[in-house]
Amino acid sequence: MNTIISIISKDILSEFRSKDMFVSMFTFSLIIIFLFNLVMDMSSELKNIVSPAVLWITFLFSGTIGLSRSFALEKESDAIRGLLLAPVDRSLIYLGKFTSNLIFLLAMEIITIPIFIILFNYEFDQKFLNILLITFLGTAGFVTVGTLFAAMSLNTRLREVLLPILYFPVIIPVLLNSVRITSSLLNGNTLADNSASLQVLIAFDIIFLAAGVLLYEYIIEES
C-alpha cells in the first residue's frame, strides 16, 4: 500500500511542478469538443444520441495523450530504472501508475463536463451526477489497459504513434457501453434502466485490472 501511495504522490508532485501534461490534455479536450460543436448541427432531435459520443471520443483522445505522456516522463531521465530497481512487486508499480493516471484523467474530465454542458446546451442537474459515476467507471476501463499499452508502445520503434493503434480496438466495449448509458441518462432514464450495460462496464474494469496486475511485469521488464 505504501508503495502505491508513494508512486501516486511522486506523479502528482511532478505534475504540480510542471503542469505540462494536464495543460496539454485539457487544452486538447477543449479543442476537440469545440470542433465537434462547431461542425455539427446540435439543434436536431439527434442531440442526445450524438453528444454522448462526442463527449466520450473527447475523453478517449485526450486521455490517450495523458497516458502516453505519463509513461514518457518515466522514460525521459530513465526514472523507470529507479522504479524497477526498488525492491517492490511489479504489480504494485502497475497499481500505482494506474491510480495516478486515473486521477489525472478524471481531473481533466471533471473540468471538461461543465464545458460540455454549456456548449451542448444542457442543464446543470441531477443527471450529471450519474454521468460522473459513468465517467469514473469508463475512465477506469480506459486506464486499466491504457497503462499497460502506454508502457508497451513507448518501448517500440513507433513510440507514441503505436498507442492508439494498440489501445482503441481493445477499449471498444467501454466506449460502446459508456456512450449508451450516457445517452440513456440524458434521455431521462435512470441508472437502473441500464443495469446490463453497467454490469458489462464494471466487469471490464475488474477483468482488465486483474489482467494488468498479472501482465505488467512482462512489459516493464523489457523497458
Binding site: V145, L148, M152, N155, T156, L166, P169, V170, P173, V200, A203, F204, I207, F208, A211, L215, Y218, I219, E221, E222
Partner: peptide, 16 residues
C-alpha cells in the same frame, strides 16, 4: 513478450 501480452488481452476482450 509484447505480442503475447497483447494477444491475451485481445482474446479476453472479444467476449466482452
Amino acid at each position: 513478450k509484447f505480442a503475447a501480452v497483447y494477444s491475451i488481452i485481445a482474446f479476453i476482450d472479444l467476449p466482452i
